[in-house]
């Protein structure tokens, strides 16, 4: 496993969480503004009011679903850094082995302990793959939530088109909502690709 790849995952995880946090806050703020706008126009825009409410609820659900994302990365980082520690120790033993080539007793000892070190690394590697799979599942659940949010965006656009004559800038509101949702969708998609890249490497033993 390339340690720089894990560093990239850590960075992607931090970036994704911040992007989601900001975008969901924006969605909530815009939905709240839309609800105020709807209220000002009375019953004429009641349909859009329902959509705006759905936006807020979806944003809250997504926020809840995204909350464990950052924490879920910590076990992965820990697992890989344990592997790094073990590899570091293994490197030291390799050096000992090189220096001890002419000392048969010492070389035997190093060879025997090499097996147990390799088994330790393999066990840690397997644990890391399990954690990685769980992380991919968490991200997949988030993607399902985003798909629902996109459905609400579409409904919002329809309602906005139907209420166009009211003079309220609902098309603009719907467009901005769509952009915010797309930001979250793209960030999560990118993060999942990064995770799946590592999972592929780990499963194929690269």
């Amino acid at each position: 496993m390339d340690i720089q790849r894990i560093m990239r995952i850590m960075d992607a995880s931090y970036r994704t969480c911040r992007t989601i946090e900001y975008a969901l806050h924006e969605i909530d703020r815009r939905a709240l503004n839309a609800m105020v706008l709807v209220k000002r126009h009375g019953n004429k825009l009641a349909g859009y009011g329902v959509v705006a409410q759905a936006f807020r609820e979806q944003a809250a659900h997504l926020k809840e679903a995204a909350a464990p994302l950052q924490h879920s990365t910590a076990p992965l980082v820990r697992a890989h850094m344990h592997i790094l520690q073990r590899r570091r120790n293994a490197e030291l033993f390799c050096r000992i082995a090189e220096n001890a080539r002419c000392n048969a007793r010492c070389a035997d000892f190093v060879r025997q302990s090499e097996g147990s070190r390799q088994r330790g690394i393999a066990a840690e590697d397997a644990d890391a793959v399990v954690i990685l799979r769980e992380l991919v599942q968490t991200v997949a659940r988030l993607q399902e939530g985003i798909a629902e949010q996109e459905y609400v965006v579409t409904n919002g656009r329809i309602e906005a088109a139907l209420s166009e004559r009211s003079g309220a800038p609902l098309m603009r509101v719907s467009h901005e909502m769509g952009v915010a949702v797309a930001t979250v969708r793209d960030a999560i998609w990118e993060y999942r690709s990064e995770l799946e890249g590592v999972l592929h490497e780990s499963s194929t033993g690269i």
Binding site: M7, Q70, T73, V77
Partner: peptide
């Protein structure tokens, strides 16, 4: 220290951009 490194890096990644 060497022994707490995995915990430190994991905690760091929660609060700052690791890079």
């Amino acid at each position: 220290g060497f022994e707490i490194f995995p915990q430190v890096l994991a905690a760091l990644a929660e609060v700052i951009q690791p890079s």
